[in-house]
Design a protein around this nucleic acid. Structure first.
Lengths: 171, 171
DNA sequence: AAATACTTTCAGAAAATTTTGAAAATTCAA
DNA sequence: TTGAATTTTCAAAATTTTCTGAAAGTATTT
């Protein structure tokens, strides 16, 4: 690949992040705003984001809100400024942990709940029902395992993560 | 919750699985077919799936294909039968591993590639470019870490997973 | 309290994704 | 071969999701 100018590279970054994110269930604009803020040295307001990404005010507002729900960006109130400014968390380890945490909450949590509900509703009084409960129980067990594994990974601090990372590299 | 009949519980299972899956980027019908096969004691053909889920032949065909790509179901050719029959992998640990493997391949792989491409295109000859490369490098590092962690989890066998699971429970 | 600056909401429009179903392709028995 | 059974494809339709932009809501200044 030939040498790119910075602007071009940043645009490519934003585009890539947006495309990948949409492949795994996160909306494109949300990912684009996130990467824009990730790359921006200063915090930005809604108008700046609208101009940069060529999207509507409503869209910007809604996705900023979602990004705050995900814990990926922060609102910043600058003294003497009426407008709200937004900045992204730049520590990528924190970002990754935050994403893992949210996905755990959104994807694994509801699965565990649903399986518990199903368990409660069925009595294993026939072979058929036993078979059904076996599957529900298995899914429950695996989900709880995944939940616990992720939780313990997330609880352990950055140093642990990095040392693990180095260990894996050196094996 | 009151006592449910088995049929009702199975329908709820299929519906829940479909809803959850669509919340995290997998299409609803694919998840419904998967859960139908997961709960079915015998393998099923396209017509049976069409009838049970009230969906078109094309839709069934396409999603069976996708499920095979994910490695979640197998085609079974019954002797004396022209039609193709399908059965789901019932070992939930294997299912979970397969899902983790695919998601790693589809979500993390392209991210690592994209960051490598960006790195190659930029020379750190200004402070701005250095900052940009810092972020790209950080993302690259975290992605590779996540990739390695998942890979080593997946390589380790079921016994390891279960013993870890027990450890976490006993702590 | 009125005007101004800004943010939020939400109904309808646009875009993206999923689904349908009939036609084309493939497979296999006779 | 032929042709009946079955699977695959794919353009168009249906559905779902996302986006727009103007109106409503809030906060701040004068």
């Amino acid at each position: 690949m030939s040498i790119m100018e910075l602007k071009e590279a940043k645009d490519k970054f934003i585009h890539t992040w947006g495309t990948l994110a949409s492949q795994w269930g996160i909306n494109r604009t949300m990912a684009q705003i996130h990467s824009l803020l990730l790359l921006s040295p200063k915090s930005m307001n809604a108008d700046e984001i609208m101009a940069e990404l060529q999207i509507s005010r409503g869209n910007v507002n809604m996705n900023l809100r979602d990004l705050m729900d995900w814990g990926l960006i922060y609102k910043q109130l600058l003294p003497g400024e009426r407008k709200e400014y937004f900045m992204a968390e730049k520590d990528i380890w924190k970002v990754a942990k935050q994403i893992a945490k949210e996905r755990r909450r959104r994807e694994i949590g509801p699965l565990i709940e649903a399986m518990e509900d199903l368990k409660e509703g069925i009595k294993p009084d026939t072979a058929e029902k036993e078979e059904f409960l076996k599957i529900v129980n298995d899914i429950s067990t695996v989900s709880v395992f995944a939940d616990n594994t992720l939780t313990s990974l997330l609880k352990s601090d950055e140093n642990w993560l990095i040392s693990n990372f180095i260990k894996i590299f050196n094996r």
